[in-house]
Nucleic acid binder design. Structure first.
Length: 578
DNA sequence: CTTTCTCTAAAGTGCACTGTGGCCAGTGC
C-alpha cells in the first residue's frame, strides 16, 4: 500500500467517525495522523512495514498498529468494517459547501439520503426545508452548491495534472519508435485549469504507438483506439488524447493542437495573405501568386515563415501577441532560472510543516540567495497565527540565524491579516521592525465589491505593507474569488508602490494571469510567491513562473529576480521611492 | 486517539458567519 493510499484511508476513517459522532479528539487524531504520514520526511511505508514507528509525534499506539497492518497486508479491517456501515456514495456529500458530518447524518437518518442524486431530489421536492435544523434557505443553498460543483466537473487544476502528464511523456519517450514527443493544448499554454490533455508523437509506426499508449498503466478506460489517434480516461478522470503523426507533420500538429483556437485563426489569416493555407499537417499553396513554400522542421519555422518571431505557447491566447510579434516587440519572458529568492513562506511557528532552518536549507539547495518568512498573524487563529511577542521572538531568531550564514539570508516578515475595516492585525510599531510584510485577507469574504476594494486599498496605503497577498482569495474549482475591483487595486498599487503577489499555490494562482499585463504596464511590480507550508512546496514556483509568463511579465517586472544585494537595498528604501 | 505540566487521568485551536428557531448549532477558516 502506498503512502497516498494510507493517507486516504486515515482521512476517510476521520469522516466516518464524524458520521458516527465519535469523540472529536479521536477524529482529530486520525486527521493529524494522515497529515503526519503525508509529510513524513522518510519512507514511512517501509517504516510501518518494519513496525518502526515509535516516537513519531502524532502516531500513537492505535495508529501505529493500523499503519503496520496496512503496510504488511495491504488492507485495514477496522476501516473496512467502518465503511460497510455506510453507502459509498455518501462521501460525495462532503464535497458540497455547507454540508458537514452533522447535517449529512441527519439527511441520511431522516430522509435516507445517500447520494448527490438523492439530495437533489429531496431539495426539489421540498423535503429538506421541513427537516429540523434545515429551512428554505438551506435548501436553496444546497441546490446552488450542487450546481456549483457540477460546473467544475471534468476540469482539473494545472498543478494536479502536471505529474501524470510528465510521466506519460516519459513513457512515450521510452518507446523506440517515438522520434519526438510533446504535450500540446491548454496544458502547454499553462492555463490554470485544463479539461483534457493532448499528447503528440512523431513516429513512422503510428499504430504501434497508439497501441502502446492505451496499454500504459494508470488508464481507467479506453474511449477509442485507432491507427493514428487514441483517447483514454486516466485513473483520476482526466481525458487524454494521443495523436501520432509523421516527423514532417510534427511541427504543424504541435502548433495546431497547442492553440488557442483564436490564436490559430489569426495565424491562418497571416498564411492566407502569403497565398498559403495552414492546417495541422502542412502549408499548402492556395493561390497562383503564392510565395514559395518554406521548409519547416520545427515549430518556430512556421512562425518565421509568416514573418514573425517565435511566440511562446503561454502567450497564444490572441490577446495581442500577434500584433506584438508583428512589431517585433514581444516581451522576453521571465524564466525560472531568473529567480533569486522568494517571499511569503510559512514555518512550524504558524501552520507550516518545516522549521525555519529546514525551509532555509531547502531554499538554498534550490539555488536561491534569500528566503522571506511570513507566518500568519494573530487573527488567523485557525492557522496558529503569531501574536506580537511571538513575532518579535521570531525576528530575533531570524537575526541569529542570519548571523551564521554566508551569502544566504532570511528576511523576517509577516503575512499580516487585513481586518474587516482595512486596518492591519499589527500596529505600525511592530511592522516597522520587520524586513517586509505581506498583507492578506483571510476572513469576511462576503463584503460587497466596493467595501472589499476599499478595505484592501486602505491596507496598501500603509507604508509598511510591502506586498499584497492572494488578491482574490480564490481556490480554483473550489471557491470563487471574492468581489474586488482589480483595476482600482492595480492603480492603487502603482500609486502606493505596493507589490502585488502572484501566489503560485496551484489552488490559487492569484492574481490571475489576465490582469498582469495591465499591472505591468502601469509599473506595478510582481512577487512570485509559493506560499510554501512545506519544503516540497517550493516547486510551486514553477507554476508561478508559468503564470507570470502568461501575464507577459519580464524578469525586471518581478522583484524576486533581484540579487540579494539589490533586494536589501530595495527593501531599505522608503516605499514611495521603490 | 495522542500527549503530557502524567504515571492514571485530564486536556486537547477559537472565532465569525449563517440560518434557524427562539438566544443556539453547524460550518469553514
Amino acid at each position: 500500500m502506498s503512502r497516498e493510499e494510507m493517507v486516504k484511508v486515515l482521512e476517510e476513517i476521520a469522516l466516518l467517525l464524524e458520521l458516527k459522532d465519535e469523540n472529536p479528539f479521536k477524529i482529530k487524531a486520525y486527521r493529524s495522523g494522515a497529515e503526519t504520514v503525508r509529510s513524513f520526511p522518510d519512507d514511512i511505508v517501509a517504516r510501518a512495514a518494519a513496525n518502526d514507528l515509535k516516537g513519531i509525534k502524532g502516531i500513537g499506539d492505535a495508529l501505529r498498529d493500523k499503519l503496520h497492518e496496512m503496510a504488511t497486508t495491504g488492507k485495514l479491517e477496522f476501516y473496512e468494517k467502518l465503511r460497510a456501515e455506510f453507502p459509498a456514495s455518501l462521501f460525495d456529500l462532503f464535497e458540497i459547501q455547507g454540508l458537514g458530518a452533522k447535517k449529512i447524518k441527519v439527511l441520511h437518518r431522516e430522509l435516507g439520503i445517500a447520494s448527490l442524486e438523492d439530495l437533489r431530489a429531496a431539495c426539489v421536492s421540498g423535503q429538506i426545508a421541513g427537516l429540523a435544523g434545515f429551512g428554505a434557505k438551506t435548501q436553496s443553498n444546497l441546490l446552488e452548491a450542487m450546481a456549483h460543483r457540477e460546473s467544475f466537473a471534468g476540469q482539473f487544476r494545472l498543478g494536479a495534472v502536471a505529474s501524470v502528464v510528465e510521466s506519460l511523456l516519459d513513457d512515450l519517450r521510452d518507446h523506440p519508435d517515438a522520434h519526438r514527443v510533446a504535450v500540446c493544448g491548454s496544458y502547454r499554454r499553462a492555463k490554470e485549469v485544463v479539461h483534457d490533455i493532448d499528447l503528440l508523437v512523431a513516429t513512422s509506426n503510428p499504430s504501434e504507438l497508439t497501441a502502446y499508449f492505451v496499454s500504459l498503466a494508470g488508464i481507467q478506460k479506453v474511449l477509442m483506439h485507432g491507427d493514428t489517434k487514441a483517447s483514454v480516461i486516466l485513473d483520476n478522470g482526466l481525458q487524454c488524447d494521443l495523436r501520432a503523426v509523421t516527423n514532417k507533420q510534427f511541427p504543424f500538429a504541435l502548433q495546431y493542437f497547442s492553440g488557442s483556437k483564436e490564436h490559430n485563426v489569426a495565424l491562418r489569416q497571416l498564411a492566407l495573405r502569403r497565398g498559403w493555407s495552414l492546417n495541422e499537417y502542412d502549408f499548402t499553396v492556395v493561390r497562383d501568386d503564392a510565395q514559395a513554400l518554406p521548409e519547416v522542421n520545427e515549430e518556430k519555422d512556421i512562425y518565421h515563415a509568416l514573418g514573425l518571431p517565435f511566440i511562446e505557447p503561454e502567450l497564444r491566447e490572441n490577446l495581442g501577441e500577434i500584433e506584438s510579434a508583428t512589431n517585433h516587440d514581444l516581451p522576453r519572458l521571465i524564466e525560472i532560472a531568473n529567480l533569486r529568492g522568494t517571499f511569503h513562506n510559512h514555518t512550524t511557528e504558524s501552520d507550516g510543516k518545516n522549521s525555519l532552518e529546514e525551509m532555509a536549507a531547502a531554499a538554498e539547495e534550490l539555488g536561491l540567495q534569500y528566503l522571506g518568512i511570513a507566518d500568519h498573524s494573530k487573527s488567523s487563529f485557525q492557522a496558529n497565527g503569531l501574536n506580537e511577542q511571538r513575532l518579535l521572538q521570531q525576528v530575533q531568531e531570524i537575526a541569529e540565524f542570519n548571523a551564521k550564514q554566508q551569502g544566504f539570508r532570511v528576511f523576517a516578515g509577516s503575512e499580516v491579516d487585513i481586518l474587516k475595516d482595512g486596518s492591519l492585525d499589527f500596529s505600525n510599531d511592530i511592522l516597522a521592525q520587520l524586513d517586509y510584510c505581506v498583507a492578506s485577507v483571510h476572513n469576511a469574504f462576503t463584503l460587497s465589491e466596493e467595501e472589499m476594494t476599499r478595505r484592501i486599498i486602505r491596507a496598501m496605503e500603509n507604508e509598511h505593507v510591502t506586498m499584497l497577498g492572494h488578491l482574490t482569495g480564490r481556490l480554483l474549482l473550489k471557491r470563487d474569488a471574492y468581489a474586488v475591483n482589480h483595476s482600482k487595486i492595480i492603480d492603487c498599487a502603482a500609486e502606493t508602490r505596493t507589490v502585488i503577489e502572484l501566489n503560485c499555490n496551484p489552488m490559487r494562482l492569484d492574481m490571475d494571469w489576465r490582469w498582469w499585463r495591465r499591472a505591468r504596464d502601469r509599473g506595478v511590480l510582481c512577487s512570485i510567491n509559493p506560499d510554501a507550508h512545506h519544503t516540497e512546496q517550493f516547486r510551486f514556483l514553477h507554476f508561478g513562473v508559468l503564470q507570470a509568463r502568461k501575464g507577459w511579465l519580464r524578469r525586471d517586472d518581478v522583484i524576486n529576480t533581484f540579487s540579494l544585494e539589490k533586494m536589501q537595498e530595495w527593501l531599505a528604501r522608503p516605499k514611495h521611492l521603490r
